[in-house]
Lab assay of single mutants.
Amino acid sequence: MFKRLMMVALLVIAPLSAATAADQTNPYKLMDEAAQKTFDRLKNEQPQIRANPDYLRTIVDQELLPYVQVKYAGALVLGQYYKSATPAQREAYFAAFREYLKQAYGQALAMYHGQTYQIAPEQPLGDKTIVPIRVTIIDPNGRPPVRLDFQWRKNSQTGNWQAYDMIAEGVSMITTKQNEWGTLLRTKGIDGLTAQLKSISQQKITLEEKK
């Protein structure tokens, strides 16, 4: 169930391209415009997507990853294993993690069937560096609404905000991946996880038929 919630949630996290980005210092504006741009692209490019579902990787690479804190999220997933990894191991892992996100997020976007969304009203940021933004996803086919909290983090150097995690039903996506990959990290280390991520990233994206 959580895996499905995570995939549905990713439908609204794909941010804007650099040329049309919203105010990078306001995570609420980023979330709002990102959702609108993403849904528009999914709707307008269905012919290309249906002809070649792996085209979704391109959308992810162009529109999402430049505005997601990939390395920060990847380091959180590694936890204690990050500090013990060599620079070469980290570089290989982050490259594999990025390719994994292209496949995983692309597969999530393949679930698009006309969903709509509501974003919580903007709250004062103050001096906060981590801000959760509640998004409610509404399914046109009558499924119950899904309420999610996207975690946005302020870059201490640039002042810009980027998304790095999502919490559904009190469970963090980062925590879920830590639990899912924990045994592999304990037995085969970061190299074993890197190899698995490379394998997963090679899987073809498949479209979910409308139910």
Rank of each mutant, 00 (worst) to 15 (best):
Q203A: 08
S156R: 02
E91R: 04
V68P: 00
I49K: 03
G170Q: 01
G192K: 10
R153F: 00
K204P: 12
P66T: 06
D32V: 05
S199P: 14
Q118K: 10
Y93I: 02
Q46D: 07
I174Y: 06
P140M: 13
F94G: 09
V135K: 00
M173C: 01
R41H: 04
Q107I: 14
Y55G: 09
Y55V: 09
L197F: 14
L76H: 01
D32E: 09
L30Y: 12
Q24E: 13
Q103N: 15
W161F: 08
Q80I: 07
V135Q: 03
H113A: 07
E91Q: 11
Y28C: 07
N155P: 01
Q62R: 07
K3P: 01
G106E: 02
Q48Y: 08
A195G: 11
G114V: 10
G189I: 00
Y164I: 07
N44D: 14
L11G: 01
P15L: 10
L16E: 03
T20F: 14
A92F: 10
T129Q: 08
S84L: 11
T129D: 06
R186F: 02
T86L: 09
P140S: 12
I167E: 04
G74T: 00
A75V: 02
R134P: 02
L64Q: 01
I133L: 09
W181N: 15
A85F: 03
R4S: 08
M166F: 06
Q151F: 05
V70I: 11
K210S: 09
R153I: 00
D23E: 12
K210D: 08
L65W: 10
K188R: 10
K188A: 08
V146A: 10
E169F: 00
V135F: 02
F2M: 14
Y164H: 08
A85L: 05
P15T: 14
Y81E: 14
K188E: 11
R186I: 03
I200S: 14
Q151N: 06
G182R: 14
L185I: 14
K188I: 06
P132K: 05
Y72H: 02
V171M: 12
A19V: 07
T194A: 08
L42M: 15
T86M: 07
K188M: 10
R4P: 02
Q46V: 07
L42T: 09
Y81V: 15
A95L: 14
V171P: 00
G74W: 00
R143E: 01
L30A: 08
T116R: 15
V171C: 05
A110V: 15
S172Y: 01
N160D: 05
I167V: 14
K71Y: 03
K102V: 14
G114P: 04
A75T: 01
I200H: 08
E209L: 12
K177T: 11
M31E: 02
G170A: 02
D149S: 03
Q203Y: 08
E209G: 12
M31F: 03
A21C: 04
L56F: 07
E122K: 11
V135H: 01
F97K: 04
H113P: 05
K29P: 12
A104T: 12
Q48E: 13
M7T: 04
Y82P: 00
E91M: 06
Y112Q: 03
D191K: 03
V171Y: 03
